[in-house]
């Protein structure tokens, strides 16, 4: 499937949309994007930074002519990847596992069983985790996940299947 055709460029307005549009998108989607990011990076502060950074970069000419939610989600995914990459470099020798429950308070709020799931999710390879978050948190269709992640739909399906199988192996005994 041709992914290029999903970004309608031929009919797009010539310049970036007015500032008001960006502000409206920010108001409307900020919290949702922070929630997406928190599942990818594990803690609220970093998640908020990622989203702030995405919008700060969208000023001026760096913006695509059609600014969609899918595009914003791709930006959050990319931002989260950068954060995790930096963090991995930093923690390589000290601590391997990142915890998706960032504080004791959060751990209590969500409960031990859910925390085990999130821990297992955090241990997955980056793409597998992203695919699961987009599928089971955002409830996106394969085609939408493919668009946001920038991969083909068949890759989405195989990645999701592998991720689920791995989670099942890690958490299976709890069921």
């Amino acid at each position: 499937m041709d992914r290029e055709s999903q970004w309608p460029t031929a009919l797009a307005p010539p310049g970036p949309p007015p500032q008001a549009d960006l502000a409206a998108l920010y108001r409307e989607h900020r919290v949702g994007l922070v929630r997406l990011a928190v599942l990818l990076v594990g803690d609220l502060e970093t998640a908020e930074d990622v989203v702030q950074d995405v919008f700060a970069r969208l000023h001026g000419r760096r913006r695509p002519p059609d600014l969609t939610l899918a595009y914003l989600r791709t930006c959050v995914l990319n931002g989260s990847r950068s954060v995790l990459r930096r963090r991995a470099v930093m923690l390589r020798r000290t601590q391997r596992v990142t915890d998706l429950a960032d504080s004791a308070e959060t751990a209590v709020l969500i409960g031990e069983s859910r925390r085990q799931v999130l821990l297992a999710l955090a241990r997955l390879p980056r793409r597998q985790r992203e695919a699961l978050v987009l599928r089971y948190y955002l409830d996106l269709a394969d085609s939408e996940i493919a668009l946001v992640m920038g991969v083909g739909q068949s890759t989405v399906r195989s990645t999701t299947a592998r991720a689920l199988a791995r989670l099942l192996r890690e958490l299976g005994e709890d069921d």
């Binding site: 919290v31 922070v34 929630r35 997406l36 928190v38 599942l39 609220l44 998640a47 998706l100 429950a101 959060t106 709020l109 969500i110 409960g111 069983s113 859910r114 925390r115 799931v117 999130l118 999710l121 699961l132 978050v133 089971y136 948190y137 689920l164 989670l167 099942l168 958490l171 299976g172 069921d175």
Partner: peptide, 19 residues
């Protein structure tokens, strides 16, 4: 529907609600 999918949905929704 497998349980692992339900557990995933539930855990992620719970984590997101803490924001």
């Amino acid at each position: 529907m497998s349980t692992i999918e339900d557990r995933l949905r539930d855990a992620m929704a719970a984590r997101a609600r803490t924001v």
